[in-house]
Simulated assay, not measured.
Amino acid sequence: MTEHSKDNEQQESVLTFPCEFPVKAMGKSGEDFDAKVVSIIRQHVDDIKEGAVTTNTSKGGKYTSVTVMITATSKQQLDKIYQSLNDDSDIVMTL
Rank of each mutant, 00 (worst) to 15 (best):
T71H: 02
T73N: 07
H4R: 15
M26V: 07
I70G: 06
T64E: 05
C19M: 14
Q77L: 01
H4N: 14
T2I: 04
A35K: 11
S84P: 05
K75V: 00
S39D: 15
E9K: 09
D34V: 02
N86F: 04
D32G: 03
D34A: 14
S39Q: 13
T94I: 06
H44G: 04
V68R: 01
K6L: 11
K62W: 09
E50Y: 06
Q83T: 15
R42A: 10
H44P: 09
H4V: 10
K24A: 04
D46V: 07
C19I: 11
I41V: 10
G30S: 12
T73G: 07
D88M: 04
L15C: 06
E3P: 06
K28S: 05
T55Q: 11
F33K: 07
Y82N: 13
M69L: 13
L15G: 03
P18E: 15
P18M: 12
M26Q: 07
S13Q: 12
P18G: 13
Q43P: 03
T71C: 04
L95Q: 04
K75L: 01
T73Y: 01
D90R: 01
E50S: 05
K24Q: 07
V92P: 01
V53I: 12
H4L: 14
D90I: 00
M26W: 00
S84D: 14
D90P: 03
E9I: 08
K6C: 02
T67F: 00
K24D: 03
R42N: 11
N8K: 15
S89A: 14
K28F: 10
R42Q: 12
T54A: 10
S89M: 11
V66D: 10
Q10G: 02
D47W: 06
A52P: 05
H44C: 12
N56Q: 12
F17K: 01
Y82T: 11
L15Y: 14
S65W: 15
E31P: 09
E20N: 13
A52C: 10
I40A: 07
I91N: 12
S89R: 14
K28T: 05
L95V: 03
V66L: 06
K59P: 08
A35E: 11
I48P: 04
Q76W: 03
D88F: 00
E31H: 01
Q76M: 07
A72M: 06
N8I: 14
Y82L: 11
K6W: 01
K36C: 04
M69N: 12
E3Y: 10
T64M: 10
V92C: 02
E20K: 12
Y82K: 11
K62T: 13
I91S: 14
I41M: 07
K75Y: 03
A72D: 03
S13P: 09
S74L: 08
D46A: 15
E31T: 12
T57K: 10
S13V: 12
I41T: 07
E9R: 09
H44Y: 14
Q43D: 07
R42H: 10
I81E: 15
G30R: 09
E31A: 02
I48A: 05
T71L: 05
L85G: 04
F33S: 02
L15Q: 07
E20P: 02
V92E: 04
K62F: 05
N56F: 08
D7A: 11
D46M: 15
K62A: 09
H4A: 14
E20G: 01
Y63V: 00
L95H: 02
D34N: 09
L95N: 03
L85H: 08
T57F: 12
K80Y: 03
D90V: 00
D88Y: 01
K36T: 07
R42T: 05
T71W: 00
K28L: 07
